[in-house]
Design a protein around this nucleic acid. Structure first.
Length: 209
DNA sequence: ACGAGGATGCTCT
DNA sequence: GAGCATCCTCGTG
């Protein structure tokens, strides 16, 4: 199975996010066992979205883009990593989508561990149950040893890449509003496998009060 | 089971 | 100074 190519990410962000559910996430390490997981949950962020980090950088009326700060990296070439420090504590892994100059990214929110499980547990804590290793965006980056070093690097081959997958016959792709945001909560831009045990336990923003 | 609160750093006003 | 694309621990029932 070949890694997902630049062309795979040079598409509508909503399509990329749906196609990544069921894909394999591979973190190859030269000196140790690789980490492999199956993506079970993603979220979409686009340039016309108030929850987007580069939200105020793009002026749709004039077509001008201000290239200031980290958010501008969301307009970079498709297939690059966008890794963001959330709440000063957790690294969150995104893949840049859409042609260069158009803003978009897919957040990887949860995976099912497939290979390297004991090494993930060593990183996450010895008492973790399997389901707790990677069922959240900050948890999976800790388990897979993903951090700022992957920001603006190609995610189309080792040491970090995706392999196209798909859903099993008895699995259903479903949607909800995104998690942990206060703006743009009406958009159903979270994609996940219904009733999958490794989907993150958090409540979608539109269901909060 | 579930809710409240703290940790912690970067970005923008 | 406020606001986060989160997670963990420690209270209560």
């Amino acid at each position: 199975m070949d890694p997902c190519s630049t062309d795979f990410f040079t598409r509508d962000t909503l399509k990329v996010a749906q196609d990544l559910v069921g894909a394999r996430l591979v973190r190859a390490r030269s000196d140790a066992e690789s980490f492999v997981g199956r993506v079970v949950e993603t979220e979409v962020y686009t340039q016309d979205d108030p929850a987007f980090h580069g939200w105020n950088l793009y002026d749709a009326e004039t077509g001008t883009l201000r290239k200031e700060g980290r958010g501008a990296d969301l307009f970079s070439a498709p297939g690059l990593g966008y890794v963001y420090l959330c709440y000063g504590v957790h690294w969150l892994l995104n893949v840049v989508t859409e042609p260069e100059g158009t803003g978009g990214a897919v957040l990887i929110r949860a995976v099912e561990p497939l290979e390297g499980i004991e090494a993930m547990r060593a990183r996450r804590g010895p008492d973790r149950r399997d389901v707790e290793l990677t069922n959240g965006p900050g948890k999976l980056t800790e388990a897979f040893d993903v951090d700022d070093a992957f920001h603006q690097t190609e995610l189309t081959g080792p040491p970090l890449y995706f392999e196209a997958g798909g859903l099993l016959d008895d699995e259903t792709l479903t949607t909800s509003s995104r998690i942990g945001i206060s703006k743009g909560i009406e958009r159903p831009w979270r994609f996940f496998i219904e009733d999958h045990p490794f989907v993150s336990p958090a409540t979608p923003s539109a269901q909060n009060s």
